[in-house]
Design a protein around this nucleic acid. Structure first.
Lengths: 334, 334
DNA sequence: TACTGCGATTTGAACGATCAAACCGATTTA
DNA sequence: TAAATCGGTTTGATCGTTCAAATCGCAGTA
């Protein structure tokens, strides 16, 4: 049956007042130990669970994190694993993830507003940050808590807001070194069109590793639309230009490059395909990234809320920035 | 700033009472047109949005749909696209999707309980239904609204609960016919281990199409663990056994089969990889499936709630069952 | 003895919405 | 003319929790 256990039931069962039960749950240190135990036992026995709607009404905190679910553009992506990790970490911290969709930045901002009116999520997790991202400034202006998975590309201040990201450059640098160690001297890179922060980051790791050896990287670089067929065409060109091994900006492109000939290829993201076809690839620590996002947010929320408007408390601390290293998963392809 | 517009603000602004505003929003037909317009204008001007927490406290309805996010086992899967569709359809119907994770059925049932206590989702959407699924009976016993994406495999009653699914047999039958039309006479099938409802369903469409022509399918069938390498091995065997074309239970397996030789291959699920490598595959109408799930649930919720305990109303109607057809996406591989 | 201080606990009010019942003015019915 | 009906609207109570203030018992101090 639909047992509906309220705080009053627990209070009665433990012979204390409602408020004492509330205190046990929210500020246990201010309740005498003996009382606390009695209340906790009652909570246990009755199977009490706090009603978030009622709590939220009083406190304005919903214990919800809002995340946009992306529309899996064309490629194989990585978002679902991040989302899974986020859901898990959030649950551990007593939060739940609520989803929304949006076609573009403007409509996403509209959705912020809707969500805030109806469900009052405590914070937002943004992904796919990009040049000229207006979402972060909107959230900041409204004093809302949020973290981005992805650096704030293109903003000179290096990000006035907290973010978590994976160091793409470190990844491609590791991949390039791996190929150098195997004896390759002419290592090509297949990238995305200019203007993508992630793309330039990944390109950078490859380039700087070659430059550090005194090589000029440019001749062995090609940009593609990110498709497998684009990757295959680019790989043919690079092989013709003398490349003996290839680092790719994504698994999608790498998958195409594999068709182009018998040179070692390294992809990025370690998507399921990579495992299936034996593609060496860079694996993002997505579960950890998600956990760090949750960590950043809970820290932010547990200290002075950003939207409390108070100038003091945690508001003035510099926002946290977390950069994680991807790891090279070595398979047959390189 | 954090404008907080309540129903009382709207009421004042429109010179009516709180309840009239509430009526305009919930039962507009009982408000005089002139008043209704005035209230709607006030809602618009003030940017009012109903506070779900307050509404839920009074009504017990949260306008949340709970969905478990799966842990992307090994393979490339299809869940993320379903989830995206679900979020979109739900939003259109005034609902939001809240996520949870679970390691197995038992812990999932525990999570049902937690969620119901804390967030009171109006309904659950279950995926990955399987033989002996205890989750559906738990939900049914507790009088909760839910729909499964996937048939209730193995229950003789054909499902006492509503479900939405994609007709896998119809898909593989279409694939098989496509190969027959191309002139193939010895068409193999690479499947999953016995005991999977989805796997047997997909196998069935291939088998019955051959049987209808008077052929014996068994000699050209192999079961695998679902991996690409398993698919490759099975494909080699089948080709050696005389198969000139292959229908596969998944894209993962099909990807392996492609490596085995130069015979036509058809996969299932039309994952991003299929597009990348030119694999002909069966595409599930996931957005529509998601929309139908939402449709089934809203119908259920808008009629007599199942958990209202009332024997009358919509409870006695037979639950809705929706079976959708996948479509064959023809690419280079077949 | 009376006052102050303090930790632990209780009480009343409030969050924002909806339900149920009351109310009101105009019309119909007896 | 009084009563009943009816559409439209308003009023009071309530959902379950937490905040703020009040209360209580007890020890320390003047």
């Amino acid at each position: 049956m639909a047992e509906k256990v309220t705080i009053a039931d627990v209070a009665r069962h433990a012979s204390v007042s409602r408020q004492t039960v509330s205190n046990v749950l929210n500020t246990p240190e201010m309740v005498r130990e003996e009382t606390r135990d009695r209340v906790l036992r009652a909570v246990e026995e009755l199977g009490y669970r706090v009603n978030q709607a009622a709590r939220r009404m009083r406190t304005g905190r919903s214990r919800l994190l809002a995340v946009r679910i992306e529309s899996t553009q064309d490629g194989m992506n990585v978002f679902d694993r991040f989302l899974h990790g986020l859901t898990e970490s959030a649950a551990r911290a007593g939060y739940r993830v609520i989803l929304y969709t949006a076609d573009d930045d403007r409509s996403e901002i509209g959705t912020f507003d809707d969500l805030l009116g109806a469900y009052e999520p405590d914070a937002f997790v943004l992904t796919s940050t990009h040049f000229g991202d207006v979402r972060t400034s909107w959230l900041a202006e409204h004093g809302l808590a949020f973290v981005t998975f992805g650096r704030p590309w293109g903003t000179p201040d290096g990000g006035a807001h907290p973010w978590v990201d994976v160091d793409g450059a470190a990844g491609t640098a590791a991949a390039t070194r791996h190929l150098l160690d195997a004896g390759h001297r002419r290592i090509g890179f297949i990238g995305w069109p200019e203007g993508s922060g992630v793309g330039e980051d990944r390109r950078g790791g490859w380039a700087r590793t070659l430059v550090a050896r005194g090589d000029r990287p440019e001749p062995l670089e090609r940009r593609t639309d990110g498709s497998a067929s684009g990757g295959e065409a680019a790989a043919r060109e690079l092989i013709a230009a003398g490349a003996t091994a290839l680092v790719c900006v994504s698994d999608s492109v790498a998958l195409g490059a594999l068709q182009a000939g018998d040179v070692p290829v390294i992809g990025f993201d370690d998507t399921p395909v990579a495992g299936a076809v034996g593609l060496t690839s860079l694996s993002q620590p997505l579960a950890e990234a998600a956990a760090r996002c949750v960590g950043v947010l809970t820290a932010l929320l547990d200290s002075g809320l950003p939207n409390s408007g108070l100038p003091g408390s945690g508001a003035s601390r510099t926002p946290e920035h977390v950069l994680l290293e991807p790891s090279l998963v070595i398979r047959r392809s390189a």
